[in-house]
Design a protein around this nucleic acid. Structure first.
Lengths: 220, 220
DNA sequence: TAATTACCGTACCATAGAGTACGATTTTCC
DNA sequence: GGAAAATCGTACTCTATGGTACGGTAATTA
């Protein structure tokens, strides 16, 4: 059919895919835990149990393995975010629910480590930043923007660019705690901190985007 | 007087201070440009022109030099921010002026590089994150919070925790473009982008913190 | 079953870079 | 002017690590 021999090349090809993913996952752990230069190919090979030759037969260089890891981790991160937006209930409840889940994901140790990793290497690996952004934050923005667009349509929020509104809301929720985590000022975020942050951000957002002429009246 | 021989130890001590600063500045360039592990002590020594022994006589290890660099760069960064808050004019103007200058600083290549550096190494150098935060962002928050506190006092803004309000305002202004820069999605920020961002953030902030019962009436 | 392909183990290479040693030279202090 | 401290230049050690080579072995395919 294609240039390949056949689509069902059998066990060989399938095993190769599995093995590749195993390698990427093991490598992810190392890169997330120790950063780019703190990760050694030898250590990854040791974790895998196999030999170094095998590792190099899958990824001919550390760079390629790294971008594969970013790709994989970003995709995995996005997958977790799919079921985040629950449209039932009223607007403040939906926003609170959404932002709480978002905060959980974003401040998790792995997410922080991924963010650090991508940010740190964005200079050397420009495509890593792009891959991460497209897969993780941007997907979430799009999701939320669609929701907000409908809400604006129904007059529950002032009409405005829904994508910008979505970004604003996300940064309003996330930036403060995320900064603290990224700088290592707090080792781990508690549920209480997250809730407090949500209770600060959601009302602010609702005020800022209240329909014109709504005055101080805000539901929730 | 103290444990030292004298306060005016003369040229020797003064030269030593100068030399130390020269080293830190040269090292800053390297660390900001190439990250922690991408920077080599030998390269710094080469830049300085002197010998490696001299470099080690000032900083006994790469780690110590690194924290000195973070300290110095953060302090320099904060110094630039001192004259940022111009209280003349009405509230929206003051906020616009402030946020525009803040954005300029924060999205400058050096600031982005510093942020990347600190974030990346915050795991290995916990104190680096702390030093940076205390010197740079926090100082700005405190400055702005004092200003906002007065504004709230005069009833121009709704009464609320001024520190949280300051942080909210700063993240509202900065987070979007800063994220783009940190991820390497845009090489350099234009004046137009900054202005657009300010025109988005300031009205949002004013709505969110409008005095109770002020309805849709906002000055500016 | 025979050929191919993947994998293992291990030893190895080349380079880089942090940190040291040391004698010669300059600068500062008294 | 002479002692003391700082600096210089250079050569060196030691370790880490990305990447290679290669012969033997297990799995897959035809």
């Amino acid at each position: 059919m294609n240039g390949e021999k056949c689509t069902a090349t059998g066990r060989r090809e399938s095993r190769r895919q599995d093995r590749r993913e195993t390698i990427v996952i093991a490598a992810s752990r190392h890169f997330l835990d120790h950063g780019y230069s703190g990760t050694t190919m030898s250590a990854i090979a040791a974790t895998l149990g196999g030999s170094k030759g095998t590792l190099w037969s899958y990824f001919p260089s550390k760079e390629e393995l790294f971008t594969a890891v970013i790709d994989h981790a970003s995709t995995a991160f996005r997958a977790q975010l799919s079921e985040i937006l629950d449209l039932s209930g009223d607007l403040p409840t939906a926003l609170r629910c959404f932002s709480l889940k978002l905060l959980e994901k974003v401040t998790s140790p792995d997410a922080i480590a991924l963010n650090r990793l991508v940010t740190a290497e964005a200079g050397r690996f420009p495509e890593a930043g792009r891959i991460f952004f497209d897969r993780a934050p941007w997907q979430t923005v799009v999701l939320l923007a669609e929701f907000l667009s409908g809400v604006m349509e129904r007059g529950q929020l002032r009409r405005d660019n829904p994508v910008e509104a979505a970004q604003t809301f996300m940064h309003l929720c996330v930036s403060r705690l995320q900064q603290q985590c990224l700088l290592g000022l707090i080792p781990e975020v508690t549920a209480g901190q997250r809730e407090r942050e949500v209770e600060r951000a959601v009302p602010l957002f609702l005020r800022a985007y209240a329909p014109d002429g709504a005055g101080g009246r805000l539901s929730g």
